[in-house]
Design a binder for these strands. Structure first.
Lengths: 190, 190, 190, 190
DNA sequence: GATGAATGAGTGTTCATTCAT
DNA sequence: CATGAATGAACACTCATTCAT
C-alpha cells in the first residue's frame, strides 16, 4: 500500500515540525514526535535510520521548499535589483505563511546536527540566486565580496527579523519588509 | 569553615563555555560540565540555583564582557561613522580572542533559555551604542528604521561571520573585517 | 509488537511490597524496586505513571484484596455479633497469610501519599461492614458514636496487633485473636 | 558558654519537629532542618552523631514529655477507673496543645528508625500506668490480657483519633473524648 | 564550638533505540 | 509494515556527611 506509507511519513514530517515549534528542538524526543504523529516510536525507525536522520531529512526537505518558494517568478532577464527584490519578498511571504518551518530551520541550524550537513548540497536549490549574485558582481552592480558575506547581510537578516524570539517587537508588515530590503540592497550594492 | 573558592566558580564558568563549544549547548549536561571543571556535580549547585541559573548567569557575564570590549576607546565626540567603525573592530577583536564566548552566546540565544532573559537588562551595557544610533538617525546620517532592524544588519552579521559553524570558509583577516564594515555601514547609512 | 507481560506487572507489584517489608517505605526507591523485580527502572514507568502512581495503585489493590477477604462468608441475616466475629477472624487470617501486605498498608497510611487517597473510594469494599455497623447502632446493639471512632477501636487495633514492629512480643494464635475480639466487641457494644 | 549551647540544641530540637510537621518525615533532610534552626548542617553533627541520632533523640525526648503530661495528678489511691480517666484526658489535653509533637511521634513510629528503639526504655515513664493496669488485672477490674493488647485498645486509638490524617472528620471536643474513653474502658474492663 | 564549602552516591524520571509479535 | 513493550544509560537534582578554617 503505497498511499498509506506516504501518509505515515508525511504525518511524521509534520509532527516533527509542529512539536519543535510547540516545545522546542531540545525537548522534542522521538517518542513525543511519534505520539504527535499518532504513530509508534518504532515506526519512525522504519522511515528513518535514527533520530539524526529524521531531523536532518526534515531540515533538508524544508530547505528545498524554501528554495522553491524563493525562486517563484524568478526571471533572470530582469534587472538584478528587481530579481533580488522579488526573492526578498518571496522569502518573507513564505515565512509569514510557514512560520513553523522557519522556526525549525533556525533551531536546527543552531544545533550540533547542522555540523553534519553538506552545505553545498543543502543550498543547491539556491544555486540560481548565487549565479545572479555572481553576475551582479561581474557587472559591477554588487560589491565584490565572498558569497558568505553577502549571505550574512541578506539571508541572516531575513531569518533574524522573522524570528520572534530574536526581535520580539517588530511587525513584518509590507512597509517594514520594504525598508529591510532597502538596507540589504544598500549593503551589497556597489 | 572552608572559604568559598573563587577558583572553583571560575573553573565552572570556564568549563561551561568550553564544553558548550566542544559538544554543543544541548548535550552539555550538568554532570559533564562538572567533570570538565574537575568538580562534583553537587558543587555546581552551591554556586548556582539550578542548571538554568548556571546557563543564564554565564550568558549575562559574557554579555557584559562583550559590552565592555565593544566600547573600548568609545569617544562620542568623534564622527558617528568613526565611532561605529571602532565598535565594529572592537567586536571582531574580542571575537577573535574569545571565539568560544561568542559561540556560547549564539547557542544560548537560540535556546529556550533566551526567552527568560530581560533583554533591556541584558543589553544595558550596549546603551551607549543605542544612543549613538539614535543620534545618527536624528542627524540624518543613519536611516530612520527601528533599532531591531539596525541590529539585524549590524549585530547579527558580526555574529554570523564570526561563527565558524555558520560560515565555514571565511577568514576574519583585517581586510575581510574592513569589507564587512563597509557593507554594514552602507546598509544603515542614509 | 511484544505483548504486555502480565507477569512483569505482577513482579513489580510483588517486588514493591516485598521491598517495603524489607527496607521500609521510605528507603524503597524506584530503582531498588526495579532491581527486586528483575526489571529496568524504565519498565516501571510503562505500567505506572510515576512513583506515586505505583505506590497508590499498590495500596488500592491490597485494600481491595483485604476487603474481599474480610467479607468471606458474610451473611447479614446472622446476628450482628456473629457477623462481626466472622469479619474479625477473616481479617486476622488474611493478615497471618499476608503479613507483608498489611505492613505495606500500614506504612502507606502513615506516608504523605495517603493524603492523596479518596477514602470513600478506597474503602468502598468495606461498605457492607459500615452498613452492618449502622444497623447495629439502629438496633441499639452498638454504641451510637461516629464511624471513625468505631474504626479506631476495631480496624486499627487489628492493624496494630498484627504489626510486628508495633507489638513485638504478641503471638497471633487463635486464643489471642478471640480475646482481642472480646475487647473490640466490648468497646463498641451498647 | 553553656547557655549558648543549650539554645542551639533547643533550636535544632524545635526545628526538627516543626519541619516534620510542615513537610513530613520523609522530606525532612538534615540541611533543611539546619536551615529551619538557623544553624549550619555541620553544627547538627556536633550535638548528634548522625541523622538517626537526631531523630531518635527527638523521639525519646517527646516520649518523655508525653509520659510526664499523662501522669499529671496521678493518684494511685483513687479507683482505677478514675485514674485511668485522668490519664485519658491528660493525653488528649497534651495532644491538643502539642499536635506537632504527636505528629512527629506517629511518623517516627512508622519509620524504620523505630526498629532501633528499645521500647522498654522508651516507655519507662509509662511505668506507673503499667503498674496500675497490672493492679487492675489482679483486682479483677481489668481483663487478664497482655499489656500489648491493652495498649492496642488504649494508646493507639488515642493516637489514631488525634491524627487528622487518619480521621479527617472528627472533632476532639470534650464530649467526643468522653465517648472515646467510654469505649476504651468498656474494652478493657472485666 | 561553629561554620559554609564540598562531595560521591543516590533520587525520580526520560531518553534513543531494539525486540518480539 | 507496524506496533507497544522493554531497556541501560543518562538526565537534573538532593542527600547525609566530612572537611578546612
Amino acid at each position: 500500500m503505497r498511499i498509506k506509507d506516504e501518509l505515515k511519513q508525511e504525518a511524521i514530517f509534520k509532527a516533527t515540525i509542529k512539536l519543535v515549534n510547540k516545545i522546542g528542538f531540545v525537548s522534542s524526543s522521538v517518542s513525543k514526535i511519534a505520539k504527535e504523529a499518532n504513530v509508534s516510536p518504532a515506526t519512525i525507525y522504519i522511515y528513518y535510520k535514527n533520530k539524526e536522520d529524521l531531523l536532518v531529512s526534515t531540515f533538508l526537505r524544508i530547505k528545498q521548499q524554501l528554495g522553491t518558494a524563493m525562486l517563484k517568478n524568478f526571471d533572470e532577464s530582469k534587472p538584478i535589483r528587481d530579481v533580488f527584490r522579488t526573492i526578498w519578498f518571496n522569502s518573507f511571504n513564505f515565512i509569514q505563511i510557514n512560520p513553523d518551518l522557519i522556526n525549525y530551520v533556525e533551531q536546527f541550524q543552531n544545533s550540533p546536527y547542522y555540523d553534519l550537513i553538506d552545505i553545498k548540497a543543502a543550498e543547491s536549490s539556491f544555486e540560481p540566486v548565487l549565479m545572479m549574485i555572481k553576475k551582479g558582481i561581474d557587472q559591477k552592480i554588487i560589491k565584490d565580496v565572498s558569497l558568505d558575506m553577502i549571505g550574512a547581510f541578506i539571508y541572516y537578516p531575513i531569518m533574524i527579523l522573522s524570528n520572534p524570539r530574536r526581535t520580539r517587537n517588530i511587525k513584518l508588515d509590507k512597509k517594514t519588509i520594504e525598508k529591510a530590503f532597502q538596507l540589504a540592497w544598500d549593503a551589497i550594492k556597489l
